[in-house]
């Protein structure tokens, strides 16, 4: 693994990927963005990512299926669920199926950065969450 954290971001809302890709790049993530769950699954079959961020409610394939696929294929990978349909039952289901974290939409870029930093820490690869903070402070 090159020093960068490998992140796959899956959300059928294109804007999410467009905004989060640069946001995560700032803290040293290499982000691959997908809007189509099928293509994401194909890619996930090929490559082991450090972190997978996925929406839950999508048309053809459910985020939960992506979660299960990743947990089976790459047990080391941390999966972060993001959803606009957050409910206690859904949150518990996601956790039960092995999600690393569960974030309700709408969230701020920092919210996700913080969670990704935590995920990286859990993987043993400390990432510089403050990179963005420093940049912000400077800018």
């Amino acid at each position: 693994m090159s020093g960068n954290l490998q992140v796959l971001l899956l959300d059928d809302e294109p804007i999410v990927g467009r905004r989060l890709k640069p946001a995560l790049a700032k803290i040293g993530c290499e982000v691959e963005v997908f809007e189509n769950p099928e293509q994401a699954l194909i890619r996930l079959g090929q490559k082991e990512f450090d972190v997978v961020v996925t929406d839950i409610r999508m048309d053809e394939i459910d985020g939960m299926q992506v979660l299960q696929f990743v947990r089976e294929r790459w047990p080391r990978t941390n999966v972060i669920m993001i959803t606009g349909y957050a409910m206690m039952s859904l949150a518990r289901e996601a956790m039960e199926k092995g999600a690393f974290d569960f974030i309700a939409k709408p969230f701020k870029p920092d919210d996700l950065r913080r969670v990704i930093a935590k995920a990286a820490r859990a993987l043993g690869s400390e990432i510089d969450f403050d990179a963005a903070e420093v940049e912000k402070a400077n800018g």
């Binding site: 957050a86 206690m88 949150a91 518990r92 289901e93 956790m95 039960e96 092995g98 999600a99 974290d101 569960f102 974030i103 309700a104 969230f107 919210d111 913080r114 969670v115």
Partner: peptide
């Protein structure tokens, strides 16, 4: 010990 009851960003926010 069940993962179901692990805290997460969303539940902490709640």
């Amino acid at each position: 010990g069940y993962r179901k009851f692990q805290p997460m960003t969303y539940s902490r926010k709640c």
